[in-house]
């Protein structure tokens, strides 16, 4: 598999009146062609900002990508002129957002919003675009597409709108779809439908998926690999199996332990991660997770642990990763 997108040492900061918010601070990851990559972390850890940075859509001011490279299809998106980045957005990289209601224009019909990019990016005629729009809606499982095309966003339920968003995202045959919390606003039953749909379409068309979520459980079934983010940094990366079965960062472990699981016997007490995520404006020295960490050692207060391999394809940014890993393996065995 070839690498489709490579994010290298991305740094996006917000320069606010109160200080600098290091929303994304040295994030690196790669997405292979056809791969589904999960990006997981608590709210405010910089997931959305890292995605917006790829699209160069970070509000500026106050946001600014101050460092790094984003290599897509052999070129650095951060260096492209505005006119060309616009051709990448929507056409090659499409986005699906958490709130479909606010990302669609309420006063335009679904047809207008679907055909617009077809006409713009693929230079289709009106009738062609319309036919294509019907086909796309069918593809994402919207019944009665001819009639639905004439309707406005408010006439759709949340789940249906998310399907429309996926249809719009797919409309120009992009190589990568970034889905930012695509199911957070939906019920579990609908969530399963939407993720199944995305996964199937991705397989069918070989589109890569970047699924961003704050809920580890959501992507377990769908992601090939998972990145865990904390306070603006990727702190663990591995295959889904590695991450869920052998977590080797205390934060990942904490996330997994804090949710009650239906497949395991009920425990008397939940095991939360104490405390709360740090303020990105006043990050502590050393490891940002240190204050909430049960495994912290003296070294954690002095150095920022680098993301380093603990086994093939499995990386962790923790000084005691090996200990955790061997414990997890023992536990599994």
């Amino acid at each position: 598999m070839a690498t489709l997108l490579e994010v290298k040492d991305l740094r996006t900061h917000f320069f606010t009146r109160e200080g600098v918010v290091k929303a994304v601070d040295g994030v690196s990851y790669a997405i292979e062609e056809g791969e589904t990559l999960g990006l997981v972390g608590e709210s405010g850890c910089g997931k959305s900002v890292s995605a917006l940075s790829i699209m160069r859509l970070v509000p500026d001011p106050p946001g600014k990508t101050v460092g790094g490279e984003i290599i897509f299809d052999g070129q650095d998106l951060l260096k492209l002129p505005d006119s060309e980045i616009r051709r990448v957005r929507g056409k090659q990289i499409a986005m699906v957002y958490q709130e479909p209601m606010t990302s669609l224009n309420p006063v335009l019909t679904i047809e207008r919003q679907l055909t617009e990019s077809l006409e713009l990016h693929l230079a289709m005629s009106k009738t062609e675009a319309r036919r294509e729009a019907v086909r796309r809606l069918e593809q994402v499982g919207i019944p009665d597409p001819e009639r639905r095309l004439k309707q406005y966003p408010h006439q759709f339920s949340g789940g249906m709108l998310q399907r429309v968003m996926i249809a719009i995202a797919l409309s120009c045959n992009p190589k990568l779809i970034i889905a930012d919390e695509p199911t957070t606003a939906l019920d579990v039953t609908i969530q399963a439908q939407i993720l199944d749909l995305m996964k199937n379409l991705s397989r069918e068309y070989g589109v890569s998926l970047l699924i961003i979520t704050h809920n580890l459980g959501v992507v377990a079934r769908y992601a090939d690999r998972v990145n865990i983010m904390y306070a603006g940094k990727v702190i663990e990366r591995g295959t889904a199996r590695d991450i869920y079965r052998h977590p080797s960062h205390p934060y990942t472990l904490g996330l997994l332990n804090s949710v009650p699981r239906l497949d395991l016997p009920r425990t008397e007490k939940l095991d939360p991660i104490e405390g709360q995520p740090p303020d990105l404006m006043h990050l502590p020295a050393g490891c940002a997770f240190r204050e909430r960490c049960r495994f912290a050692i003296a070294r954690c207060a002095q150095e920022i642990p680098p993301l380093r391999p603990v086994s093939a394809g499995h990386l962790s940014a923790c000084f005691v990763a090996e200990t955790l890993l061997s414990r997890a393996k023992e536990h599994a065995a």
Partner: peptide, 22 residues
């Protein structure tokens, strides 16, 4: 159906589980 749709944070178990699509 509701119970079967609840995701389980373990790729192996979650993919083996039967889902009742609603």
């Amino acid at each position: 159906a509701l119970l079967s749709a609840v995701p389980i944070p373990d790729p192996v178990i979650d993919t083996q589980r039967e889902r009742i699509p609603l």
